[in-house]
């Protein structure tokens, strides 16, 4: 039983980690909690389903198209909403982020309706629901293996992008000191847009994986997932990409164990409680920098 809970928690945790990475990268670069990130995740799922049902695309092509659309959405979000406020007080940017989140959510509500819908099963590879591994009471489906593989490959790719490429170096420079980075000839706005695109791609993948895993998608799905992923980012230490990955997995496992052993009614509460506890007792998270106000 415990092992099964751990596997379910790990699946969920890897998905949280994918979303959390988007929060943490944007926070690292422009110190903004991008509340609308949860909506990008929701859009990813809806784009994918729309491409499958309306355009008749195969599953993997639809995923790619959805990722591209979400990257564009992320870039547009930055250009339209956040770029004009770079010099504004942080409160203004934060309120704008919440406003955009609610705006996008309601646009989706108008376009796709408020009812939750199933993921078109016909488009999925048929082996997804089959058991890949059965050991006593524990079972692992191919879908879970697929989620593990995709999440780990994406995060590995992200890690390499940030640490081994030119643009990744620029992102890290920006996170340290924006002025100095621009003096070194880094195009600040370009790098920020790239960060949004990268984060949105990860978010879109997470959205698609969740909607396949739970076989459901609805316009408000970005809300809870967004908050939980943010909690994961905080848990790992906001601004730190490896931290977000660790935080996501820890949170997913904690949630699965909490739901299994304490009370399934407070399933969502675990994330909030963990988040509040981390912020109170160790605001820098597991792997983060210190964030307490100097004043």
């Amino acid at each position: 039983m415990l092992e099964q809970q751990l596997i379910n928690g790990l699946t969920l945790g890897l998905i949280y980690a994918l979303i959390a990475v988007g929060y943490t990268m944007v926070y690292g670069v422009i110190q903004l909690i991008n509340f609308a990130h949860g909506e990008i995740y929701m859009l990813g799922a809806f784009f994918c389903v729309t491409f499958i049902t309306a355009a008749g695309m195969p599953f993997y092509v639809a995923i790619l198209m959805a990722i591209i659309c979400c990257m564009l959405c992320g870039i547009l979000l930055d250009i339209i909403a956040y770029r004009p406020l770079r010099k504004a007080p942080r409160l203004a940017a934060l309120i704008t982020a919440i406003g955009m989140s609610i705006f996008l959510q309601n646009v989706a509500l108008i376009i796709w309706g408020s009812r939750s819908r199933p993921f078109p099963q016909g488009a999925l590879p048929p082996f997804f629901r089959e058991k890949a591994l059965v050991m006593g009471d524990i079972s692992l489906t191919w879908l879970q293996l697929f989620i593990f593989a995709v999440a780990i490959i994406m995060m590995l790719g992200l890690y390499l992008t940030i640490n081994k490429t030119r643009i990744g170096t620029a992102m890290r420079a920006l996170a340290q000191n924006k002025t100095a980075a621009s003096l070194m000839g880094i195009n600040v706005n370009y790098v920020i847009s790239f960060t949004f695109a990268l984060g949105s791609a990860m978010g879109a993948v997470a959205g698609i994986l969740v909607s396949v895993y739970y076989n459901t998608l609805y316009p408000t799905m970005g809300y809870t997932a967004g908050v939980k992923a943010f909690a994961a980012a905080v848990l790992g230490g906001i601004g730190s990409v490896p931290g977000a990955m660790v935080g996501g997995v820890v949170l997913g496992v904690a949630e699965a164990l909490g739901a299994g052993y304490v009370s399934s009614l407070y399933r969502d509460g675990v994330a909030y409680a963990v988040m509040i506890a981390v912020i109170i007792f160790r605001p820098s998270g597991i792997l983060g920098r210190s964030v307490v106000d100097k004043a």
Binding site: I33, R90, L91, L94, V227, D268, I276
Partner: peptide, 15 residues
């Protein structure tokens, strides 16, 4: 805490 963290704690509290 800084403002952002505070915002998110209040959010978690109301949830």
């Amino acid at each position: 805490l800084t403002g952002d963290y505070f915002a998110i704690v209040t959010f978690g509290f109301s949830e």
